[in-house]
Computed example of a mutant assay.
Amino acid sequence: MDTLDPKDAKPGDEVFVIYNNPHTPTVSNIVSAEIVQHPHDPNRTALFLHETFHTIEDDDAIFTSEASATQAYNEMYGDHDFNL
């Protein structure tokens, strides 16, 4: 799996994450996100996902391709078809 070390993330990078729905904890999807400059800290980057900024943590799994995210998803949740 091709993951991106959060320290190597650069503004403008398109990435993929496994997003756990906060309203329905049993629902997870692969979604695309963009690495952007953190809106409150010019020395950090953030994920821009669902029109919201998310602080990138050291233990976040950020994937460089949809295929890598899908492989990780299938390893964690089983091989299911889903749409982005």
Score class of each variant (00 low, 15 high):
M1P: 10
M1E: 07
D2K: 06
T3P: 00
D5E: 01
D8F: 04
D8Q: 10
A9R: 05
A9V: 05
K10N: 08
P11R: 03
G12A: 08
D13I: 04
V15D: 02
F16G: 05
V17K: 09
I18F: 00
P22K: 09
H23G: 09
T24M: 15
V27P: 00
S28I: 02
I30S: 00
I30L: 10
S32F: 03
E34R: 14
I35D: 02
I35S: 01
Q37K: 11
Q37F: 06
H38Y: 02
H40N: 13
H40W: 04
H40F: 12
D41P: 11
D41C: 15
P42D: 14
R44Q: 13
R44G: 07
T45P: 04
A46G: 09
A46W: 00
A46S: 14
L49T: 05
L49D: 06
E51L: 11
H54G: 05
E57A: 15
D58T: 13
D58E: 11
D60V: 00
I62C: 03
S65L: 02
E66S: 01
S68E: 15
S68W: 09
S68Y: 10
Q71L: 14
Q71S: 12
A72K: 10
A72G: 06
A72T: 14
A72M: 11
Y73V: 07
Y73W: 10
E75F: 06
E75Y: 01
G78N: 01
G78M: 05
D79W: 08
D79F: 05
H80V: 15
F82S: 08
L84N: 11
